[in-house]
Amino acid sequence: MPSASKTHADSRFDRLVYERVRLGMMSALAVRDELTFSELKTLFDVSDGNLSAHARKLEDAGYVTCTKSFDGRRPKSVYRLTAAGRAALNRYLDHVEAVIKATRTA
């Protein structure tokens, strides 16, 4: 039987990674060292506010880091996937694969 803390971690993970834009952001960052805010916005075709909110949630969870700088006079935010974020994505992939295996053998 899973411990209470593990169950809590899993449910927190589900809420964070399950959402489509956040899952896409983490998947994209898994294959690129870094992506800027505007690159992510183009990739997922979302508004600034929407992307900011999702990015903040991933940052707060420690799944991505954000480095802010200036490119000339324009502010630039660069996102990177952390080790915890990569582990969470792998865990999510394991869950999805397990679901597929379980339903195919059912």
């Binding site: 899952l23 896409g24 952001m25 294959v31």
Partner: peptide, 30 residues
Amino acid sequence: MRSPSAVALDAHAAATLRYIRASMDAAGTV
């Protein structure tokens, strides 16, 4: 026989995997 809910779950999981793959491909570089 597989239940309809199992089929839906399987299809949803497969669609999620496809979405992850598409996101990786779109962001990936050669």
